[in-house]
């Protein structure tokens, strides 16, 4: 009887580590990509809808991280239960910022937007250092998330699985929300053409405030989820700014699909690069970003 070709019953030893490596890279890379997606999808939508270059997006992620740490340390709330709080609190905080500061700048030059948000980053860094101190925050995942589960000859981290699960759920909710709900249709209309949307009676400002809040909340959630992998200290918004920018620009502003593809690409490239060619360091992601930007200046899924 011929052996089934696709599913060999026993993998010979020299091949096993290679396959283990590939599976490991895929799993870790996608988990990391999901984390990046959750953190930066909000930025992508705001950029597409209001053409607002909000470099201070990382501030929301940082804030989410601090909410989680403070709740865990001061109130003894378990890690998983702090996550919704991180989402909600950050979303609420973002509303006045959008209303009173950002809204004035939607028609401003791109450069002014960049400078305004850089100013906000500086203020946030100093404020965080003042409130929580300049040291990195002590943080430990609960025990059940630090374990590795063996499935066959492969081992997966529970933390990675959590990132994957939350990322997938959020992706599905976003897609469903955008494609199937009335509010999603309003968002799409506003992204497509703001003036026409206004003309047909959509309250674009309100739609935008809500979208902005949700996007910021997601960044907060991502920041909270990511403390274990990314660390948390006051300079967080600067340290990971490049990552957000890469996701948004490779994906193209305003597309959830693009942000997802870009985040996964970035996660996989970064992980694979470190695994197979660690000597290149951060080169790979920068070069990938440069090439994509030169090939398609509006991003993989962006419209010209």
């Amino acid at each position: 009887m011929p052996r089934p070709f696709l599913f060999p019953t026993r993998i010979t030893p020299p091949v096993l580590p290679i396959i283990q490596g590939i599976v490991q890279v895929l799993f870790d890379g996608i988990a990391f990509g999901m984390l990046l997606f959750v953190m930066s999808v909000g930025l992508s939508i705001t950029l597409g809808m209001m053409h607002f270059a909000n470099l201070a997006h990382g501030v929301f992620a940082m804030l989410g991280g601090y909410v989680t740490v403070v709740l865990m340390h001061k109130a003894g709330v378990p890690f998983l239960e702090t996550l919704p709080a991180a989402f909600v609190i950050v979303a609420i905080v973002s509303v006045p910022l959008e209303r009173f500061v950002y809204r004035r700048m939607y028609s401003a030059k791109e450069l002014d937007q960049v400078l305004l948000t850089v100013g906000i980053i500086y203020m946030a860094i100093a404020a965080a250092a003042y409130v929580w101190g300049p040291e990195p925050m002590a943080f430990a995942l609960p025990d059940y998330l630090t374990r590795y589960r063996d499935i066959g000859s492969f081992s997966f981290s529970t933390y990675g699985a959590l990132l994957l699960a939350i990322g997938t759920v959020i992706t599905l909710v976003i897609f469903y929300g955008l494609e199937r709900t009335r509010f999603g249709a309003m968002i799409r209309a506003a992204v497509d053409d703001r003036r026409v949307a206004l003309g047909v009676g959509i309250n674009v400002n309100r739609v935008f405030t809500i979208t902005f809040a949700v996007g910021s909340g997601l960044a907060g959630l991502g920041g909270a989820l990511g403390i274990n992998a990314l660390g948390l200290d006051p300079s967080f918004p600067i340290e990971y700014l490049v990552f957000f920018l890469i996701v948004v620009s490779i994906g193209g502003g305003g597309t959830v699909k693009g942000a997802l593809a870009a985040a996964l690409l970035l996660g996989l490239c970064d992980t694979a690069g470190k695994y197979y060619v660690p000597q290149t360091g951060a080169f790979i992601i920068y070069v990938v970003m440069l090439l994509v930007m030169l090939w398609r200046p509006n991003g993989l899924f962006g419209r010209p």
């Binding site: 305004l116 980053i121 500086y122 203020m123 003042y130």
Partner: peptide, 13 residues
């Protein structure tokens, strides 16, 4: 840093 940031925001706004 805080004050530099504030100056920046005020000037842009």
């Amino acid at each position: 840093y805080f004050w530099i940031g504030l100056i920046l925001v005020v000037i842009v706004l």
